[in-house]
């Protein structure tokens, strides 16, 4: 059975593209006759999947422990405010030298700031109120940029 693309609108996956670096003839044959794997390859794939699962779990536990970003600490990982600040960081700050310097400084100082915040409910509340003003400013800036 001919192989179809895995992505939307006939998108090609990075893995399918990577096969071009191994054997182009194999890509053609897999397209004509369907993907086939040996028993040995199946075992290798299972080992790879297990290793990837462990690799992901290591990453998740590491990220969960850090709690070093103030917005994540105050609003939560998936809160709208956190997403706006992330968008502002990626779309505005990281695109200029001064912005990258500010982001770097923030990453270095935020873990200790977060450690103080989690110990004081009043400080957490005050930071939340302050950050909401910052988020509103960021939203306004992003909206103006999109209009231009």
């Amino acid at each position: 059975m001919p192989r179809k693309g895995h992505g939307r609108r006939g998108e090609v996956t990075a893995k399918e593209m990577a096969e071009m670096g191994f054997c182009e003839k194999r890509i053609q044959l897999a397209h004509l006759y369907g993907e086939q794997v040996t028993h040995e390859q199946q075992k290798d794939r299972a080992r790879g999947q297990l290793a990837h699962q462990r690799y992901l779990e290591d990453g998740l536990s590491s990220r969960g422990d850090r709690r070093c970003f103030v917005a994540t600490c105050v609003f939560g990982q998936d809160a709208l405010e956190t997403q706006v600040l992330r968008q502002y960081r990626d779309a505005v700050l990281l695109r200029c030298r001064l912005g990258r310097w500010i982001v770097g400084l923030y990453y270095r100082t935020s873990p200790s700031l977060c450690a103080h915040l989690v110990r004081s409910a009043a400080a957490m509340d005050a930071t939340r109120r302050l950050l909401r003003v910052v988020v509103a400013g960021c939203l306004l800036h992003i909206a103006r940029r999109d209009e231009q």
């Binding site: 054997c23 003839k25 194999r26 044959l29 086939q36 040996t38």
Partner: peptide
Amino acid sequence: PAYATSEAACRQCALRHKCDR
């Protein structure tokens, strides 16, 4: 299409019986 640079790779290919290399 080009073939794999190494013939050793072909020995592990599940589609080698259909290949005209």
